[in-house]
Structures are given as structure tokens and as C-alpha cells.
């Protein structure tokens, strides 16, 4: 579903992402882990077409984000780390705006809005202005807006930050349910316990380079994810993307098999 090939992005002299390759198949949920400034947000923003990158390619559902950005964006939902949502709209107004852009029919959007807002405990506040929302409420609204058009790939930057324990639990359940339904999910997090419990796969990035990527069980081995992460952080090990390249499971890549 998501195929990142040799992604490189520089800011001035600094390489934020350096030759990153990663593939995520439909129905997979992959945690993206790394220290602050490792390149997680840059990678996620590049995947959803917000950032232009210097070299490499990103395919979503077989479509290139470079040549067919709108085709890619039709299939994705993006949740940034700090959900700055239109404060001049009400919660329901914002959800309807997103649904209108994706052309979600009235009946379907009503059902989805109520289902997800009930689940996350936001229904009573939907008529409030977004400007009156707390960080957690904005996060919930951003989650609902990301799910309203039933995306095939969900890209999330720190989705659990600001959520209360109940909403955090509900979101984890919801993500698992979506994955079981075939949605691919790629999200960054610093909560390693959540990543460990929720994800099929994990990718660890350090200084812009993918250090490890693979099945959660394989990467973790007998240790905890935290142990693996800390060990990688404490070594000057150069980027080892072999394991990532070995995990190509995406059958929607147009160039697969070439």
C-alpha cells in the first residue's frame, strides 16, 4: 500500500531523511520510531504530499506521490503531531468540510461521524467551536476527520499524544479493527509500549537513516522494544536497511517484479 524508495530530503546542509526505503502492505500496522529530529515527521509529510523531497519515490496504492498527488491523497488520511484545525469552524462543521472534499454521501458520513465521535467521547462537543477545544479534543476531531472517508492508508504523527486513557485505548482498538479490514497504518510514536502491543511491524530511524525495519517479533527478539531502541540509539551503527528491503510485502507496487 505504501512503498517508499530511497527517500532523501535535505534542509540546507542537513539531511533530514537519507535514502529511506520502506514498504507497508494493506492490513499492516507499522510503528515508526526514532529520537527527536530523527526524520519521522519529514518522512510522514513527504508521504502525504505536504513536503517535496529531493530524490527517491513514494508510491501509494501503486500511484506516485510525485506524478499523481491527488490520486494518492484520495486514498490517504494524515494526522499531524499538532492538529491545528480550523478554529473558525465548529467541530461538526470541520468534519462536514472534510467529508465534502472527499465526497462522502450524507448517510455514510452521518453514520461514521456518530460512530467515531461516540467511541472517542466527542459527540456532545461537536457543535462547539474548535477554538474552544482542548488539545485532546482537537486530536479526537482530527482522528475522526481522518477516518471519515474510509482511507486505505492512514499516516499519523504521534496520534496518542493528548488523548485521555480511555480515548487512547479506543483508538488502539479502532486502529486494530481498521487493519483487520485491510487499511494500512503507518504512525510515529514515542510510546514504545503501545507500538509493541499494537503493531505488526516496526521501523526505527536514526539521524535520517532507517536503522531497522521488520516484523515486530523479529526486531524485538527476546528483548523489549525499548531495549532494542536504546541499544540502537547508543551505538553508532550505520544504517542497515537490509532488513527493511527484505520485507517487501506490497503487491500494489507497479514496479514489483520488474
Amino acid at each position: 500500500m505504501l512503498r517508499i524508495e530511497n527517500l532523501t530530503k535535505t534542509y540546507g546542509d542537513k539531511k533530514a531523511v537519507d535514502g529511506l526505503s520502506l514498504h507497508i502492505a494493506p492490513g499492516e500496522i507499522c510503528a515508526f520510531i526514532g529520537h527527536n529530529g530523527a526524520g519521522k515527521t519529514t518522512t510522514l509529510k513527504s508521504c502525504c504530499g505536504i513536503l517535496k523531497f529531493d530524490s527517491g519515490e513514494i508510491y501509494i496504492g501503486g500511484k506516485s506521490i510525485k506524478t499523481d498527488p491527488l490520486g494518492c491523497k484520495e486514498q490517504i488520511a494524515y494526522l499531524p503531531d499538532n492538529p491545528d484545525l480550523y478554529e473558525f469552524m465548529t467541530g461538526i462543521g470541520y468534519l462536514n468540510f472534510i467529508a465534502d472534499i472527499f465526497g462522502v454521501p450524507a448517510e455514510t458520513r452521518t453514520e461514521r461521524i456518530h460512530r467515531y465521535s461516540d467511541l472517542l467521547g466527542l459527540t456532545a462537543d461537536l457543535a462547539q467551536s474548535v477554538s474552544a477545544y482542548s488539545h485532546g479534543m482537537k486530536q479526537k476531531l482530527a482522528v475522526i476527520s481522518a477516518l471519515i472517508h474510509d482511507p486505505k492508508l492512514i499516516l499519523m504523527d504521534e496520534p496518542f499524544v493528548g488523548l485521555d486513557p480511555k480515548a487512547s485505548h479506543q483508538l488502539r482498538e479502532l486502529l486494530r479493527e481498521l487493519c483487520d479490514g485491510g487499511t494500512a497504518i503507518f504512525f510515529s510514536t514515542h510510546i514504545l509500549e503501545t507500538a509493541e502491543r499494537l503493531c505488526d511491524r516496526v521501523a526505527i530511524i536514526k539521524n535520517g537513516r532507517l536503522v531497522v525495519a521488520g516484523e515486530m517479533e523479529e526486531v524485538r527478539g527476546d528483548a523489549s522494544l525499548e531495549d532494542v531502541f536504546l541499544e540502537l540509539e547508543n551505538t553508532d551503527k550505520p544504517a542497515d536497511t537490509d532488513s527493511a528491503d527484505a520485507e517487501i510485502t506490497d503487491d500494489t507496487n507497479p514496479e514489483a517484479g520488474k
Binding site: Y86, M89, T90, G91, I92, N96, F97, A99, D100, I101, G103, V104, P105, A106, E107, R109, T110, I113, H114, T123, A124, D125, L126, A127, Q128
Partner: peptide, 22 residues
């Protein structure tokens, strides 16, 4: 004063109308 949301069927609009309304 808190405005309480009342459930009802959402009204749809074309993307262009939604952008103009925004």
C-alpha cells in the same frame, strides 16, 4: 454557553461549495 450537538442527517456540498464556505 456550550452549544449541545443534536444528531441529524448531515447536509452535503460539492468540494467547490465547501471551499467557498470555508
Amino acid at each position: 454557553k456550550k452549544v449541545v450537538y443534536s444528531r441529524g442527517e448531515a447536509k452535503t456540498a460539492s468540494p467547490d461549495s465547501a471551499l467557498l464556505r470555508r
